[in-house]
Amino acid sequence: MSLPLGLSVERIHAMYQRMLLMRAFDEHAGLARRENRLRGSVHEYTGQEAIAAGVCAMLRPADYISSYHRGHGHCIAKGADPAAMMLEIYGKAGGVCGGKGGSMHVADFSLSILGANGVVADGVTIAVGAAQAVRLLGEERIVVAFFGDGALNRGPMLEALNWAKVYDLPILFVCEDNGYSDHTRTASVTAGPGIVARAEAFGIPADSIDGNDLLAVACAAALLVGEVRTGKGPRFLHATTCRWRGHLALDRGLYRDPEEVAGYAAQDPIARIAGWLLDNGVAQATLDGDAAAAAGRIADAVALAEAAPCPDEAQLFTDVQDAGASSWA
């Protein structure tokens, strides 16, 4: 079948495979956290995979992305090695950040991934700065900032939108709207006509789509990325989605109806695109093979991470700062 915007069944299939990897990674991460095999905060991306997959499929290796606390999916979508990420969230030597960052700070600069971030909206201001550097250095790349709907109520987010438009920077803002700001329903704490209107108030063209529909994400992202890449200035993509798990892996869920959460499965972006792939000539056996491959790759990563050594104690003092490092460890 013919698809618009250079899309093809093969490309969609590849995005689907990435989504399976994200799902397997975070379903394990959440479980491992609940079993206390991991420490700290783990924020699963489960249910939101189509957004990272569809957007990152439109990017070149040199394009920067910044992410937020729910960041594993974006890293995998941009090509990060799940094994190095698993080592990281297990706090082990060989982790992509040497085990010193953990779940909220996964990043791989060799892939232009500027990192997940533990402070809501801070990755967005960093992203506009990355775009400013791109401009200053005369580079070809663009920047994508991923963030959640909760970020729209932080001042720096609004500053960053203004900033991007004032300097006409090559950046795509991607709001993953799962309806929740941490443990609070976003609508209950948000004034005004909505997220798209906020972007448009700064003169930034915005598109709103069903973020559980990979095809919709991919098509919108292809258009918006193309506009940003051709120097038309910042663009904004609002993608509605469902956060299947808690804000954190350890989440009592007191703020939402379990029935609402149970209903999310009907919008499963993976099941939906699997159906489309079947309709478009991909065999069930192939899809089954994809799922097994993703599960196997994550199982291997887990085995590696669980067996790996912790960072040695000298790592405590490395990479703090150069000035004074020798005398003030």
Partner: peptide, 28 residues
């Protein structure tokens, strides 16, 4: 004006964008 940049009164983004630009190859 691209190297001496007058900014809005947005200290969070003045700082955040400088960090982003610093980690992406410039020295703000």
């Amino acid at each position: 004006r691209h190297r001496i940049v007058d900014t809005p009164i947005s200290e969070s983004t003045i700082m955040g964008s400088a960090i982003g630009a610093a980690i992406c190859g410039t020295r703000p």
